[in-house]
Simulated assay, not measured.
Amino acid sequence: MTQPHISSRKADFRVYLGSTLLFIYIVISTLIVGVAILGGYFLPFQWRYKFADIWIDCLLYMLKLCCGLSYEVEGLEHIPQDRAAIVLSKHQSAWETVALRQFIRPQTAVLKKSLLQIPFGGWALATLKPIAIDRQNQKEALKMLIDQGIERLQEGLFVVVFPEGTRVAPGAHKKFNAGGAMLAQKSGFPVIPLAHNAGEFWPRNSFLKYPGVIKVKIGPPISSADKKSKDINAEAEAWITQAMAKIEAEKH
């Protein structure tokens, strides 16, 4: 792994106040929306998904209002309109676990099974067709990713995978896991590479959120036809690495 970029960003009163207000909003809104989604358990999936979408739209609005943090997306034209795809995304922050739902719809994501045990929020998430894996059992986790991933793709849901497996600090790089690429190979669906620098504004394991504009770059679809998973993975990793370098260069 390469050495992470160490930010010199300083937190002032506005950062602490905005982050605190956002935290309070997240706690209260998650409880309310979680109850609403659980209460709608017997409604069609599209209804529950819409409840979650409204929560995310409001959360990102509050993130901008309280913390001065917004985002810009380049490459939206690369998202297929007539079929689903596997999205292989850079993973730096908690931001992308929710924000990608605002412009890649409808979708599900691969996540830790333990997240579904969180009261209300996790319980509600469990009704939204996530692919929840146990990282301690890698063989079973891979089988679940492929089996459930194919089902979700055939239902028309984009499947978001974070191939680094965990949040990686800005400037650092972790070798991509092959699960998402294997899903592409087995399913025949294309891969959409996605890069962003959310970790510079919403650092991993940090309470504080800093003002600014998160840059998101979406790459052209990578065909999985007649390709080995390692080649799909290498192509996606190379594009994301190059896009991250461009994001860094554009700051100067």
Rank of each mutant, 00 (worst) to 15 (best):
K175R: 11
Q136Y: 10
K217Y: 09
W123C: 11
A169I: 01
L31W: 06
D57V: 05
Y71Q: 00
M182C: 09
E74L: 03
E248C: 02
K129W: 13
K10S: 12
K209H: 08
A225T: 12
M244P: 00
G121T: 06
V35C: 13
E96V: 06
Y41H: 09
V73R: 04
F176V: 03
L43I: 11
I24N: 07
F162G: 05
I28R: 05
K251H: 13
P221F: 04
I37F: 08
V15P: 03
G180H: 01
I214K: 06
K174F: 08
P193A: 11
K186L: 04
G75D: 10
E74P: 00
L115N: 10
P193T: 10
F201T: 01
F23Q: 12
A195V: 13
A85I: 00
L22V: 11
I56E: 12
M182R: 15
L21C: 14
P44I: 13
A94T: 15
D231V: 14
R204C: 00
L59S: 13
K64A: 05
L142W: 01
A234V: 08
G165R: 12
I240Q: 08
L59G: 10
S187H: 03
P44N: 14
K251D: 02
M144A: 15
N137M: 08
F13V: 14
D53W: 10
Q3T: 15
L69K: 03
L115G: 08
F158Q: 08
P190F: 00
D147A: 12
L145E: 09
E155A: 15
P106T: 03
P221C: 14
S8F: 05
C66S: 07
E200S: 04
P170E: 00
R152H: 12
Y16N: 12
F120W: 14
K217D: 01
I26E: 05
A36H: 02
L153G: 09
I56H: 09
S70H: 11
K251F: 02
K227I: 07
L38E: 07
F13H: 08
I247L: 03
A181F: 04
H173R: 01
P190C: 07
L194F: 02
V216P: 03
M182N: 01
I26Q: 04
E77G: 08
V73H: 06
M182P: 03
T2C: 07
Q102W: 05
N137P: 06
N197M: 05
Y71W: 13
G156Y: 08
Q92P: 06
L65R: 14
P80E: 04
